[in-house]
Nucleic acid binder design. Sequence first.
DNA 1: TTTTTTATTGTGCACGTGCACAATGCATTT
DNA 2: AAATGCATTGTGCACGTGCACAATAAAAAA
Lengths: 359, 359
Amino acid sequence: MEKKSYTIKDIAKMAKVSRGTVDRVLHNRGKVSEDALIRVNEVLEKINYHPNLIARSLKNSKDYYVAVLMPDYQSDAYWKTCYKGIKDAAKEFKSYGVSIDLYFFTMSEAGSFMESFEKILEANPDGLVLVPAFSQEAKEVYQVCDQRSIVYSTFNTPPEEGVEATFVGQDMVQSGRLGAELLHLLDKDASKFLIVHINDEEFENAIHLQKKEKGFRAYLSERSDIEILRLSIQHSDLQDQQAEIRKFLKGDSNISGIWVSSSKAFAVAEVLRDLKLKTSLVGYDLIEENTRFLEDGNIDFLINQNPRSQAFFSVAHVAEKLAFQKEMPEEHLLPIDIVSRENLIFYLNNKRNRTKLLI
Amino acid sequence: MEKKSYTIKDIAKMAKVSRGTVDRVLHNRGKVSEDALIRVNEVLEKINYHPNLIARSLKNSKDYYVAVLMPDYQSDAYWKTCYKGIKDAAKEFKSYGVSIDLYFFTMSEAGSFMESFEKILEANPDGLVLVPAFSQEAKEVYQVCDQRSIVYSTFNTPPEEGVEATFVGQDMVQSGRLGAELLHLLDKDASKFLIVHINDEEFENAIHLQKKEKGFRAYLSERSDIEILRLSIQHSDLQDQQAEIRKFLKGDSNISGIWVSSSKAFAVAEVLRDLKLKTSLVGYDLIEENTRFLEDGNIDFLINQNPRSQAFFSVAHVAEKLAFQKEMPEEHLLPIDIVSRENLIFYLNNKRNRTKLLI
DNA sequence: TTTTTTATTGTGCACGTGCACAATGCATTT
DNA sequence: AAATGCATTGTGCACGTGCACAATAAAAAA
């Protein structure tokens, strides 16, 4: 019943060799007689040895330094949530000697991305967590990190194909499919849906939005001949955005459901409320503006992109790789949560929505 | 920029005392002159000391033994998922010297619960994780554990009011509310909903089902005058269950939506399919029988009770308390996930849907 | 003053690992 | 036979903590 965990000393005794020899076998750095090798391996097979990670990491106990490169969180509620995830991870791993510093860039300026990266390099970090918003620049980053053997992981935006960087995030195509499904479930006799993109960046650069739209359309094309309208809004001012939405909705009255591909569903919700329209509405992200309308019933579902967990895990992978030599996964896809009024509370401030990683 | 983590030795040097004195101050076990006390405290305040948990747990490195007392997982897909969570936790904490053994009981026999507990006591464990399905018997368990200072936590079934045992699970009332909301969203013009209970235990003993029903009714009474029918099935044989459902549905044809309070939604789904009814259906748990009907469209939503995470965290709390002296939370409520066809895959076998706990 | 008691402070060790380096055995060369 | 080289093996140390115990200083008793 009671399993004992064996130590190197135990193994040495059992194999009638010294600790050093066992160590040499375990890390196979040669200089072991065939005789001893066989004896040690015999014991190892019998007992199924697992090294004590605590002792190991105490031994390698140095202070690791991890830099995070992400969009400025002042500007955006979504990134603020990521920031929280980073902070939680920082708190978590502090006791294991990992300290974390943040560096920011502006979404509209690729230059600011590389500028911050230069600063990071000056600080000479052991690890890097980044949002590779600019794929060309990011490639350079990966190269430099490989060269200096800086451990890195990405989140939110998937790295380009072919790059073997750890990615924590969601399946964007599936996310779009889910949006379509929810609208479809809300009104099974729907005849017309509207896609709304409201985004700072050019749509052509926003690969994640393209993937989402692709998924949205794919779902519907598989099971109905619902007409799909599309409205892409570039204004950065809320008033202008809403004016355009209002104009569009007045022009086309019998839309059954609206899917907003970004976190700006609240902009549409307000217009719907003012126009007293009962159109179904599905959007993304649990930012305060959205959750208010979810509670009032103007938004039916919000799809949670789990920004907090994305950021948290991205840091966690790097930190545990450094501190415990744990392997980093190539891809860590988070669930795409459906949030309605009645389960909203569990996705807000959920400090414990996190995970020790497998060894 | 670079934060150093201070050690006791550092503090001793700064306060011009020895390691021993710092140690005495930190664990305030007296025998320190006022003079030294002040100096050490000054340093402590300045540097915000956090002990190195790795070193600490290496020091206290013994093998901990944790017993898990849960329903037999052979009988039930739900408990099988819990079993997986336990196994994952076992794997995770093995490297930290925590080994885990399982003991089972039968849901229908309170006696088997205490029998297994007796066996557990013989093994003399340091920690216990249990599903307190029988509240009276559980009380005795808590008492014995307190007496022998066995660390314990519960999951799935909340312990009785007034007991201060760590509980990992979900808010049952809210879970019922969510079920009602989903049905309501699926058909906003609904006039009649049906509650179906299919359960092994007596309804009177199944407090969690009672709470769920309460939440279901509460939601609807707040915002509509939908008629609520109720069908409680006691048969343990699937054929008998379905016969009763078929009879009921044939008798009352214009039901807008059905909510099954347990994991037996598949039984209803099959009947609906055979009768070619398009009634909305919401149930619980991602067991294979259910997910098949979810994929076929006979079930609209499944509510995920997160059995795997419940079990995992319940073990994790005990293990981290033992190995790292982390505090155990009084209550750890997991999110109530809404699962549809398009996000189902992320909730199946999601090895990483877990969390390192806060310190 | 010397001895004993008491209050405070300093030091040694173990936990398990991983590395550096010292020590041993054995065969080959001088 | 002594000296040298090489292959293999054994040992010491550090990581940071927490506890036991030794050492010191100061006060009280002789």
